[in-house]
């Protein structure tokens, strides 16, 4: 298990006031509203939220993989090694992707080019960043395939992606991302499309590699089961804003934001199985679409604790409310903590 690094060391990634707007038909719609976070070496930060919360958009913005400036604008800072990636030219950015940040994606079945051998697809990542001979690159590819647990790598490296299962392909994608020993690995729902058993293997593999390399990891998911497996810290996102942030144990055992509480109560629990003590928790309503956010707290229309005249007037700030390492974005946090805590099933 990695220890969450102390705040005295410089973070690997430092995001400040990141704002992302999509442009369509002359209108700009903000989808991520000024978010801040740091990730340190060896640490895994889980970014949790429903579909449409802006978590994937955030990860693509870090990689500068969003559409060009005609379709979206990105403001703020994404600092890695003292450099703000948002100010780099596309050419300079090419040398950051790979050795500084790498990414693995949600869809292992479509993330590999079907017409190139998997060994070649890993090798090309190395070839454009390192001065290595053909033989050295080949050895490195074999080493990577072994690292990600692909049996018989000698034979597998000349296979085409179509001849591999989803789990194997995701391992290849991981090998590709690790090829240049990145400081930060972004994993965008890497296990969502996989069987539960394969999912567990992949998570263990990622944790194991992180222990060996000490890389930082940004893990994007909507699945609290996965969060509990892999994260050191958790950041909950709703409608393009961070609504709660804290250490894994704190967020899982004492969620403060009603949204987080709702998310957690909608996870089936083994203890309740067979008891049939009632329906699984749900959060009523839908995630508001970007550009149509309600006034005040974006979550208030769905929040069981919302009070008219309070929650629909002003957007709450992300504030400690008495716990500096577990800030939350809620105006009624003190009231909820005082009165409703016993009602919560968590």
């Amino acid at each position: 298990m990695t220890t969450p690094s102390s705040s005295t060391t410089d973070p690997v990634l430092s995001v400040r006031d990141l704002t992302i707007r999509f442009k369509a038909r002359g209108r700009e719609t903000p989808v991520v509203h000024g978010i801040d976070f740091d990730i340190h070496g060896g640490e895994t930060l889980a970014l949790v939220g429903e579909s449409g919360s802006g978590k994937s958009v955030t990860s693509f913005a870090l990689m500068r993989l969003l559409p060009d400036a005609r379709h979206c604008t990105i403001e703020g800072q994404v600092n890695i090694g003292g450099v703000n990636l948002l100010e780099l030219t596309e050419r300079k950015m090419t040398s950051v992707r790979g050795p500084k940040i790498a990414m693995i994606f949600q869809e292992p079945l479509t993330s590999l080019n079907p017409v190139h051998r998997v060994g070649d697809q890993i090798a090309e990542a190395i070839r454009y960043h390192r001065k290595m001979t053909r033989a050295q690159i080949r050895d490195r590819v074999l080493e990577l395939l072994t690292l990600v647990g692909i049996p018989d790598p000698e034979r597998r490296m000349s296979a085409y992606p179509g001849a591999m299962s989803g789990g194997m392909r995701q391992r290849v994608v991981i090998a590709m991302a690790l090829a240049l020993e990145p400081d930060l690995l972004i994993a965008d729902e890497p296990t969502t499309a996989l069987d539960v058993t394969v999912q567990a293997q992949i998570l263990e593999l990622l944790r194991d590699i992180q222990n060996r390399t000490g890389m930082a990891m940004l893990f994007i998911t909507h699945d609290f089961g996965v969060v509990a497996e892999i994260a050191d810290r958790v950041m909950v996102m709703y409608s393009g804003r961070i609504v709660e942030e804290g250490r894994l144990e704190d967020v899982l055992t004492q969620p403060r934001m009603p949204y987080t509480q709702g998310l957690l109560s909608s996870v089936p629990r083994l203890e309740d199985a067979g008891l049939r003590t009632g329906a699984l928790g749900t959060i009523e309503g839908f995630v508001p679409t970007a550009g149509n956010l309600p006034d005040g707290c974006s979550f208030h229309p769905r929040c069981p604790h919302a009070r008219p005249g309070v929650c629909d007037t002003a957007m709450p700030a992300l504030e400690p409310h008495g716990r500096p390492d577990h800030p939350v974005r809620c105006l009624r946090i003190e009231d909820i903590a005082a009165s409703d805590m016993e009602d919560l099933s968590v």
Binding site: F105, T110, E124, A125
Partner: peptide, 15 residues
């Protein structure tokens, strides 16, 4: 998706 993967691994645009 594989085009995005190719960009993500830091390949030059031409490649």
């Amino acid at each position: 998706d594989y085009v995005r993967t190719a960009k993500a691994k830091g390949l030059p645009h031409l490649r």
